[in-house]
Amino acid sequence: MKKVFQKPESLTDAKNHYCPGCSHGIIHRLVAECMDEMNIREKTIGVCPVGCSVLAYDYFNCDMLEAAHGRAPAIATAIKRLLPDRFLFTYQGDGDLASIGMAEIVHASARGEKITVIFVNNTLYGMTGGQMAPTTLLGQVTTTSPYGRKAENEGYPMKMAELLSSNEGSAYICRTAVNNPANINRTKRAIKKALQVQEKGLGFSMVEVLSACPTNWGLSPLDGMKWIEDNMIPYYPLGEFKVKEEQ
């Protein structure tokens, strides 16, 4: 028998600290599998955010930086400009990317920075205890929208993939989910495509991954996966929003 599935080399042996059923572990592995398959671990530099994945530098087996809240795209910008033959990825949650780091992500995209952003959207601030994020769905109860998010008070959930796809500098923008094996495989293909877009120097790339936070949603891991399907995908449609072809 031959091994057909194992831990990618681009992840360390460290046990992750994520809650049972949290999608971060899956998404970490997908990024690492792409790094392995493209044989780029030794020339990849990752920037992790503030949020649940703040400790991602312990899990990725490549050079890593830990950013201030929301600033990962600015950090990645400078590294990529100074070391243009390296692969740069940021790994950011929805509070980090779509709220406090909105300026950095929009401008990194507008400048067409040749970096790859892995954007994990689980509709709330996980690490701080499940507060409302810009991506929280209407009606969704969080600790800071205890009566459910209302448009008249908290506004509407932000669609980052759509928003960033309108920037000329964006070369590849895709939204996927990790709620079932087929979507997990699609997510991996999207991440690989994003890294290939970076390799070709076409511009900014981002994969928004709809992800489960069973703990803060108050659901079992399995119901969390169902919740993505039933609630998130209808508002956050999956698919490629921008694909810039080689000239």
């Binding site: 930086l65 950013a67 600033r71 600015a74 950090i75 400078a78 590294i79 950095e104």
Partner: peptide
């Protein structure tokens, strides 16, 4: 490399990234 950043915050974080290289 010269980058006109979108804000002072971005600029100093670019310095963080740049210095790390």
């Amino acid at each position: 490399v010269f980058v006109q950043a979108e804000s002072e915050l971005a600029a100093i974080n670019m310095v963080y990234g740049g210095a790390s290289t």
